[in-house]
Design a protein around this nucleic acid. Structure first.
Lengths: 131, 131
DNA sequence: CTACTTGCAAAGATTTTGCACCTCA
DNA sequence: TGAGGTGCAAAATCTTTGCAAGTAG
């Protein structure tokens, strides 16, 4: 039986993720946790974050060619708006989703995460020169 | 004023995307279109797909470390269920979304795409040995 | 003890980009 | 003709992985 250990590295990564609202990526978390645990490797950060996602403790916002952003999963029903120009991520509250898709899913599909992502361009980027 | 040209390459990429329901990635489209246009480069496929996405003609399903999958945007309101084990993508019909988020978005956010993504494990993968 | 975890570095994979050469309009 | 587009190959990123050494339980 496989056993999950509670290492210092995992505690620290979880702690870092939990105490920020900035939807950080792996590199940011790596830098952050390194202030306390200088030997922490980026590989371990990735492995830990993967585990957190598998366990439903964290969710991801993924964009091709961009670093995956991680978000600690809180009990609120929030989703994300993503600026496709600068990559900024905004939290948006959406209560109505939960019961929508179930009946329409392919038979037997085991749901672990329902994401609503609004993609577009944020105000700041609309006001930039070449938009 | 910038001018968009209607090249053979772009026609072929759009055609390939339009006539499949398999949510292909850039490499698949590249291979496919090459049967007609052997000189087509993968770089051009990426550039063309990017343009289609920017114009709202195609949408993407993006996963970290996996090739981006592209979907021709039809008039129906369909979204996607994504198996996190094998990467299979299933279409799901969802009608109720459109009017949800507007008021909750960050001020002035210009929406180009609202995606509902259901992530989980498909039946086939649940029945695999080491699940 | 010993199975799991880490650090390190290299490998993998995807996507982007610079540049010289084409080509659509 | 000329602003865009293409092909090619290299570069840039991000993420995963193999392995020897460390460590939680």
């Amino acid at each position: 039986m496989t056993m999950v250990r509670n290492t210092r590295q995992r505690q620290a990564v979880l702690q870092a993720l939990r105490t920020t609202r900035t939807h950080p990526d792996a590199a940011w978390i790596h830098q952050e946790v390194r202030r306390e645990l200088p030997s922490l490797s980026l590989g371990t950060v990735y492995r830990t974050l993967d585990a957190l996602v598998r366990d439903g403790v964290a969710v991801t916002i993924e964009r091709a060619g961009q670093a995956t952003r991680y978000d600690f999963r809180r009990d609120d029903h929030h989703h994300h708006a993503v600026c496709r120009t600068c990559g900024a991520i905004f939290d948006i509250e959406v209560q109505e989703l939960p019961n929508l898709p179930r009946t329409l899913l392919p038979g037997g599909f085991q749901v672990s995460d329902v994401r609503l992502e609004v993609h577009g361009v944020c105000v700041a980027c609309q006001n930039k020169p070449n938009h």
